[in-house]
Design a protein around this nucleic acid. Structure first.
Length: 501
RNA sequence: GGGGGUGUAGCUCAGUGGUAGAGCAUCUGACUUUUAAUCAGGUGGUCGAAGGUUCGAUCCCUUCCACCCUCACCA
């Protein structure tokens, strides 16, 4: 918020705090000292009360409640792990230091040294012998009781959300545990974590519209990656047998509760694996990650407990559609498919292809019922340009998608390593692009050259960390699992005219 | 992009075609075991922005901005 946005009230609140800041300075005390040595964190004091009772501790944190009672004062500090109450008495602290307590505000950081005891009501508390202002806060924090609920402020000023809402702090701890567990799982199985370019001269590995940017010194156009797939496969050509990347991808598409323009995927590739080996690996990974995030291999979905230790179903895509709707889509005929879809009341756009019709019926009638983890297999070749042909079934590829909690949580295949077939697939996509498909792959000659040098048979997998976090935390908006979700910029930059192209 | 909703004090929210309220925060005073501390008193608002209707608009109308929900597209 700029200063011109401040109302009079806000000015006054800030002016009050600046007055207090000046009082500290006039007393010769630096309101922003460099360090503070603490002996314990709040959680240590609470958990080790029996050992610490009567002992002196030094703790530090932000003042989140402040209750002066004349010659004594209670306050809580919030540190990285939790809250701890402190109790200051004038006779114990001395007249001047006690008077300076009045120069503190909610939001200030303080360090406190004193003995641990319990109050009459049983709350573990530090009896303040000395304290030190560690950083003055010039702006007021959100209210203590209702906290901060305005979503726009929560996302734009996430730090305020984190200060006032403990459950939000916990969400991002869970997210961190999920990512750490993924790394532990893969590292333990010999996967090498790598980093590949975000700036790519040709984008690929997914069907999406990219962000376009420009490098001045090279005077060249680059795209922010939409996937890292084609780079990871180059590493398989180079001889690494197992690689993965925790990969921030960027897709220039709509924003809603399931989509943020930048999001985090994990992609992994394993030489001499096929999609069935990946299936087994992924099941183990999900169980291990879920256990790390939640303490047990299960999660809640709409009040229902989803137990991941039960057997996971595997079923071909068309079979489960038939099972849930009674419709047989085995004949790849758009007209027939349309009649079927309309017979069960699924609206189909006029220009929909066979594949699109199947997908619409699936999304509307099948996906919402896939609560227990389910591997869907046997995807059509046309929509899988990077997957290897099915070893038995014509027109299909060796691919699966994992669904659970009515959400797609992963996509994997036996990777296409025949360079001639890959070229043909790219050319088919290029043809689609010429017909107007803005998301179709570009022909990536450099990648084809890599494949022509030989890539071992490989299984690959990609899954979205944000959506996995949503599933495991039960949150329904992707913005709740991304610390700083993409929002429209405020102010003059928002209305700057942009060159259309 | 279509449809619906929201926007009032720092925060959480009421409210009305006649010039705006509460709780918390803030300020003043009282208070040495409180914890949504309590008690007494006070300050604080371009009612998202700009137009229009009206004697008069925070309220009705139009446009715009931001966010949320939903549909379409995608992971």
């Amino acid at each position: 918020m700029s200063k011109t946005d401040q109302t009079q009230t806000q000015h006054e609140l800030i002016a009050n705090r600046r007055d207090k800041l000046n009082r500290w300075r006039e007393a010769g005390i630096d309101p922003y000292p460099h360090t503070y040595e603490r002996s314990h964190k709040s959680q240590d004091v609470l958990e080790q009360y029996d050992a610490l009772e009567g002992q002196s501790v030094s703790v530090a944190g932000r003042i989140v409640s402040l209750r002066p009672h004349g010659k004594s004062t209670f306050f809580h500090i919030l540190d990285g792990e939790g809250k701890l109450q402190c109790y200051a008495k004038k006779d114990q602290l001395g007249d001047e230091p006690y008077e300076r307590l009045g120069w503190l505000d909610l939001g200030d950081f303080v360090g406190v040294t004193g003995e641990v005891f319990k109050t009459r009501t049983g709350e573990t508390t530090v009896a303040v012998r000395e304290y030190k202002l560690l950083a003055k806060a010039l702006r007021p924090l959100p209210e203590k009781w209702h906290g901060l609920v305005d979503k726009e402020t929560r996302y734009r000023q996430r730090y305020l959300d984190l200060v006032s809402n403990e459950e939000v702090r916990e969400v991002f701890r869970v997210r961190a545990r999920i990512i750490a567990a993924i790394r532990n799982f893969l590292d333990a199985r010999g996967f090498l974590e790598v980093e590949t370019p975000v700036l790519q001269p040709i984008y690929g590995g997914a069907a999406a519209r990219p962000f376009v940017t420009h490098h001045n010194a090279l005077d060249a156009q680059f795209y922010l990656r939409i996937a890292d797939e084609l780079y990871l496969k180059r590493l398989l050509v180079g001889g690494y047998e197992r690689v993965y990347e925790v990969c921030r991808d960027f897709r220039n598409e709509g924003i809603d509760r399931d989509h943020n323009p930048e999001f985090t995927m994990v992609e992994l590739y394993a030489a001499y694996f096929d999609y069935r080996d990946i299936m087994n690996l992924f099941r183990e990974l999900i169980i291990e990650v879920t256990t790390a995030a939640r303490g047990k291999p299960s999660f809640e979905f709409n009040g229902q407990d989803v137990d991941l230790t039960k057997p996971w179903r595997e079923v071909p895509l068309l079979d489960i559609i038939k099972e849930k709707t009674g419709l047989d889509f085995s004949d790849p005929n758009a007209e027939k498919a349309r009649k079927g879809a309309e017979s069960i009341g699924v609206d189909i756009p006029d220009d929909a292809s066979y594949g699109k019709i199947v997908d619409d019926v699936f999304s509307e009638r099948v996906q919402p019922e896939l609560v227990e983890p389910t591997f869907l297999t046997d995807y059509p070749l046309e929509i899988s340009p990077l997957a290897k042909r099915h070893r038995e079934k014509a027109g299909l590829v060796e691919r699966f998608e994992l669904f659970m909690a009515a959400r797609e949580v992963g996509n994997a295949f036996s990777e296409l390593n025949d360079p001639d077939d890959q070229r043909a697939r790219f050319e088919a996509m290029a043809e689609a692009a010429r017909r107007g498909d803005v998301e179709a792959h570009q022909v990536d000659e450099d990648f084809l050259t890599a494949l022509e040098h030989g890539m071992p048979p490989t299984g690959g997998l990609g899954f979205g960390v944000d959506r996995l976090t949503m599933t495991l935390t039960g949150l329904t908006s992707i913005r709740e699992v991304i610390l700083f979700p993409t929002l429209r910029p405020l102010g003059s930059h928002a209305t700057e005219p942009s060159a259309e192209g």
